[in-house]
């Protein structure tokens, strides 16, 4: 039994082994991009919005509203980042219901990659927002004594993000596999339902925590102002 889809090599391309994590990540990417292209292809001001476009608008505006609540401002770049995190994790976890699909988020490599992305995005957003000096100064607050603790805190955030997501998704998949052997006709359905719920919750938590980290790094003394993108 493979605990991680990284170990499942699906095929090789130009000599590079493509494991299940990367393959199913491409599937998720293709699904999201294809759906977005299909729905927004006829998006013109003179064409009234259809139900699919309305659904996308509700999703995007919901994400934007959550980011605005957390960050206290409207930031399109933060929307691109946190929104993509949420959609990727959520769709990966929701596609768990498809037989044979292995969610990429069940791979510690994927969650590590996403955590690293957050770990890199936090200083990038902070430097962009406050400048290099302003961002580095946050490590000395409230006192220079806190510098090592702040650095440890910064890295522990990423580790916790990665482990939390991986643990939840991987454990759900493993428990479902174990229960499948015990009661193959009842528990898989229950576990799938629970998997959908925990998948969505984990996607929300991951995106919200990333937004919180980035917001705290970009926070200025007067953060109540709302910016235009």
């Amino acid at each position: 039994m493979n605990l991680s889809p990284d170990q499942s090599i699906m095929f090789e391309a130009w000599g590079i082994p493509i494991n299940a994590t990367i393959l199913y990540t491409w599937v998720v990417m293709a699904f999201l991009t294809g759906a977005a292209i299909l729905i927004t292809r006829n998006l013109r001001p003179d064409v009234p919005p259809n139900r699919w476009r309305t659904m996308l608008e509700v999703i995007v505006q919901g994400i934007q509203s959550q980011i605005e609540d957390v960050a206290g401002r409207r930031d399109r770049h933060l929307l691109y980042f946190a929104g993509t995190l949420f959609l990727f994790v959520a769709v990966s976890n929701l596609l768990l219901v498809i037989p044979g699909f292995e969610p990429p988020t069940a791979s510690l490599s994927t969650t590590t990659a996403l955590a690293l992305s957050v770990l890199i995005a936090v200083p990038l957003f902070g430097i962009t927002r406050r400048g290099l000096g302003g961002y580095l100064k946050t490590y000395l607050e409230p006192s220079f004594i806190m510098l090592p603790f702040n650095i440890i805190s910064e890295f522990s955030r990423g580790i916790s993000l990665a482990i939390r997501l991986y643990g939840n998704i991987m454990s759900g998949a493993v428990i479902a596999a174990i229960l499948l052997g015990v009661a193959p006709f009842f528990f898989p359905v229950v576990m799938d339902v629970l998997g959908l719920l925990t998948g969505l919750i984990q996607a929300y938590i991951f995106a919200i925590l990333a937004t919180v980290y980035i917001s705290s790094a970009t926070a200025t003394p007067n953060t109540t102002e709302k910016e235009n993108p």
Partner: peptide, 9 residues
């Protein structure tokens, strides 16, 4: 895979 996933993301 981590690098590939970062690139994919």
């Amino acid at each position: 895979t981590v690098a590939a996933q970062i690139a994919n993301f």
